[in-house]
Design a protein around this nucleic acid. Structure first.
Lengths: 332, 332
DNA sequence: CTGAAAGCGCTTACAG
DNA sequence: CTGAAAGCGCTTACAG
């Protein structure tokens, strides 16, 4: 410790933490610290009551541009508040998600952000609550984006249902009547909301979505490729394919290209999220644009500001349909 | 603590850590722990000598598919070894990079991985060494990918120079003689290597790269867009544009499209890295393919395996030129 | 196998 | 402003 190096004692602590200390002593301590490449042990520090400056963010997959974009927003606000942020990926493994929360909780991180749809699974919900409750009671802050009927925490909610419904209307307006959907795992709340919103809105317009036209795959590029391929193998009977996620739409593009089919010449394709890359595709993708960075900024802000209401706060974020070149007009 | 809840004392510690304890007591402790939603304080634990299971990974920007892909590889190996990983983004701010290392060091993370080119900056190098040296001396493991002439740690090195040279040859072979380069910040070692390798190989073939044809921008999609636009404004005098990074090439595509120029009809474009999305562009991008996931897997492995040699270990990873549709043959 | 005790490295009231 | 002391919550030799 810097102490031996100098003559003072726990005054070093004060000097290092910028509390009032005679400039002389201050300098001596700081010099010694620099000389020894001294780094205060964060654990001891935390144990003794000092607080952490590193918030934890848990998402499904950093490799996915959707989460990356949201994480970008989180980091912007964190940076502006002089906080560091560490990111974790669960790869949609509920166990691992809980392991991360548990770790962050054990580390006494000042805030935990959960990014991405929760799992519709009673066991998971209970385990998660068991972790979060004591953390919150201990003064920890938790905020989430999208998910979690069950978790009683501040949330940023993309309007998945309304967005998918709006997309249905836009597609109907273009003249489409026969649809297929590239769907994701049914255990995800996001899937349920988007698929439900889309289907219900079609139904409201008297168009039924044939269950055989809904193919489920992982929420990845390859998942989209496979799902689209399967659809094609069954003999695609639709003028328009709605991918529940832009990332899946990218896979669908590839699958169609590999079959020599053109978008939107042979079939229209639409997505959801408006991840940045989607504008750079050929053709640019029609999608429901979510303000991704902003979602991230908002959760971080929620976690940073005191909740003075007695209920959990909910920030809803609207998605807007952006019609680009991937969806053609169809004669009615 | 679980202690009060039961009757035993620090035996609880043993029970919780799976050491030999009478099943009876074990059960009692475990039950109490579950009941209280008890989570051992990781700080106290670490302070008392137990070791951490969470490695830290520091990269420039998780939002960039290049880093995301490498991080994916890291996580695969980490997961297989029952380690959690937390990811940090520096956004190419040297100060912040050091802040993260310092934090990870203070937290006594078992390993720190630095992903991405270092800064050619003496002050930064010194500060970084000052952080890393004591960490290593304290038993911490450090491994890096790409960078760091100065840091004496285990490294995974993409062959940037050779890759760029190979790209030069491939492009020459297609008949190109007049080139432009979309370059990144000169403070990054990656830029120096790739630009140097490209330029030198051209020179070896008697083709000089006009310095006015090398435009510098940030290593981002928008950086590529701007650089390409600037090139166009100057009156592009080249048949082929080499972007030092795929991400920049994506921006270049957009800039060209906005000017109504076609790739490769009006100008050929080549990139570097082979990030996943690049295959899905229209046209698919010619690039130097780096085994990104594997880079990540290798650094994690380096950090996990003891270095029994007396020197630092270096794993070189070769990049391979993949000619796709974005580069046209040109009459010689 | 299981207690009682010391110690991990800091911070923070408490006196001085 | 600056010491001396207690305590943060665990783990781990050390006896028993």
């Amino acid at each position: 410790m810097a102490r031996a190096a100098d003559v003072s004692l726990a005054t070093a602590s004060r000097a290092l933490n910028g509390m009032r200390v005679t400039p002389q002593l201050r300098d001596r301590v700081l010099a010694a610290a620099a000389q020894l490449a001294y780094t205060p042990n964060a654990h001891a520090r935390a144990l003794a009551g000092a607080s952490h400056r590193t918030v934890g963010v848990i998402c499904h997959d950093v490799t996915d541009p959707y989460f990356a974009a949201i994480a970008g927003g989180v980091m912007r606000i964190a940076g502006a508040n002089d906080l560091l942020v560490m990111l974790a990926s669960t790869f949609r493994d509920p166990e691992r998600e809980i392991a991360y929360v548990s770790m962050l909780r054990a580390e006494r991180a000042p805030a935990i952000l959960l990014i991405g749809s929760g799992f519709e699974d009673a066991r998971w919900e209970r385990a998660m609550e068991a972790e979060l409750k004591p953390y919150l009671d201990g003064g920890g802050r938790v905020a989430v984006v999208s998910r979690h009927r069950s978790l009683k925490v501040d949330s940023v909610l993309p309007e998945n249902r309304a967005g998918a419904a709006a997309m249905a209307r836009a597609l109907l307006e273009l003249g489409h009547r026969r649809f297929a959907v590239l769907s994701g795992p049914h255990a995800l709340t996001t899937v349920i909301d988007r698929l439900g919103g889309f289907r219900d809105e079609l139904a409201a317009a008297g168009v039924t979505l044939d269950p055989a036209h809904v193919v489920e795959g992982p929420f990845t590029r390859d998942g989209g490729y496979q799902a689209m391929t399967e659809l094609l193998d069954r003999g695609l009977d639709a003028t328009c394919v709605f991918a529940l996620t832009d990332v899946m739409a990218i896979g669908a593009y590839a699958a169609l290209r590999d079959r020599g089919l053109s978008v939107p010449g042979d079939v229209s394709v639409a997505g959801f999220d408006d991840i940045p890359i989607v504008r750079d595709l050929t053709p640019p993708l029609t999608t429901v644009a979510l303000p991704l960075r902003e979602l991230g900024e908002k959760v971080m802000e929620l976690a940073l500001t005191e909740n003075t209401t007695r209920r959990r706060r909910i920030v809803r974020m609207t998605g807007e349909v952006v019609v680009r070149a991937s969806t053609a007009k169809v004669g009615v």
